[in-house]
Computed example of a mutant assay.
Amino acid sequence: MTQPAARSRHIPVLGREVLISLQPREGGIYVDATFGAGGYSRAILETPQTRVIGIDRDRTAIAGGFELVDRSNGRLTLIEDRFSNLAEVCSAQGVTSVDGIVMDIGVSSMQLDEAARGFSFRADGPLDMRMGQEGPTAADVIATASEADLANIIYIFGEERHSRAIARAIVVARKQEPIASTRALADLVSKIVRTKPGDIHPATRTFQGLRIFVNGELDELHLALAAAEQVLKPGGRLVVVSFHSLEDRIVKNFFNERAKASGGSRHQPEATIAAPSFIILTKRPVTAQEDEVAANPRARSAKLRAAERTDAPHHAAGGLPGWPTLDTVMRGG
């Protein structure tokens, strides 16, 4: 577990830009939907009389934030839960609307740095990848999923063009012995994906795809954005920091859809037209400055998008994309 002293030095990616976009006001109520090391919460709490509800599905992150809870004099509440449940979390705290929500999507630096969590191929560890403490691990998926499902997972969520060859190699290798460690999987992928000096590690996209799939991260994001729309008060702001194109595309599309009137068409002119529920604040995504990238290379891929809630009712929730899910793949469905 990360020690409090180390956590207090944690500087969140695009922290300065998040505060500029969020504009926390005195006495406001905010949700840090992906608490992590608490960097955004700590910055918001510097505004007098603010209250923060911090959410994280990772029990280690929640436990590591207890010191900040103690120092906040009751202004920080930490909840172990998925950020897609942020509306229910707020309701359970007696909060019906909030002034702002910040989300930092994806795996945290703490999770990547801890080999035992199995997120990174840079240090050998069990092939786990779970952000929470429940459900099948990445090793379980590797051992159970069909070749077709593995190829789809790696292609859709990892954007890896060699996904079929990697899936085929996994199926052949697992017949000999279980693929249970990060190094075993990384070594296998490295034999298939050839890279040039200076390129990303050959296993990067495969690990990304498995991690996103195991944690249902893109479905979680879809649901969390819709939940944020429900609980933000008029004038409240939603700020999202993402780290790869799949996440950023979901956020961009959500904001674009909610920022324009939608509903009726020439085929269904009687349909009710939904008024825009957000005003987009970032016409282009905000990216890290050179000094931040030099201090934290992870910031290089970060993109921030922000929008402000209007007084229009929230839009009807849409269905989730039809990509593979953990339940169906593990059932062989």
Rank of each mutant, 00 (worst) to 15 (best):
G118P: 02
G118I: 05
F119L: 09
F119Y: 04
S120V: 01
S120W: 00
F121H: 06
F121D: 06
A123P: 00
A123V: 14
D124R: 08
D124G: 10
G125R: 11
L127D: 12
L127S: 09
D128H: 08
D128W: 04
D128K: 08
D128I: 10
M129R: 01
M131R: 11
Q133I: 14
E134Q: 15
E134M: 12
P136H: 05
P136F: 06
T137N: 11
A138Y: 07
I142V: 15
I142H: 02
A143M: 11
T144K: 11
E147H: 03
D149G: 05
L150I: 08
N152S: 13
I153L: 06
I154R: 05
E159T: 12
R161V: 13
R161C: 08
H162G: 03
S163G: 08
S163W: 08
S163V: 08
R164N: 10
R164S: 11
R164C: 08
R164E: 11
A165T: 13
A165Y: 09
A167K: 09
R168A: 15
A169P: 06
A169W: 06
V171K: 13
V172L: 15
A173Q: 15
R174H: 01
R174Q: 04
R174K: 07
R174D: 04
K175C: 11
K175A: 15
P178M: 09
P178F: 04
A180M: 08
A180W: 01
S181F: 01
R183L: 14
A184L: 13
A184V: 07
A184Y: 04
L185R: 02
A186Q: 05
D187G: 11
L188P: 14
S190R: 06
S190V: 09
I192G: 05
I192A: 08
I192M: 09
V193F: 06
V193E: 04
V193R: 07
V193H: 05
R194E: 10
R194K: 15
T195H: 07
T195F: 04
G198Q: 12
G198F: 03
D199M: 09
D199L: 06
I200W: 02
I200Y: 09
A203K: 05
F207S: 04
G209Y: 06
L210K: 03
L210H: 03
R211Y: 01
R211G: 07
R211Q: 08
R211I: 05
F213C: 02
V214Y: 03
N215Q: 09
N215A: 10
N215Y: 01
G216R: 07
G216T: 05
E217K: 04
E217H: 01
L218Q: 07
L218R: 04
L218V: 00
D219E: 15
L221W: 00
L221N: 00
A224G: 10
A224L: 05
A227W: 00
E229D: 13
Q230E: 15
Q230V: 14
V231A: 05
V231P: 03
V231E: 03
L232T: 07
L232Q: 08
L232W: 03
P234L: 14
P234V: 14
G235T: 09
G235V: 11
R237S: 05
V239S: 02
V240F: 00
F243K: 10
F243W: 06
F243P: 07
F243D: 06
H244T: 07
H244Q: 14
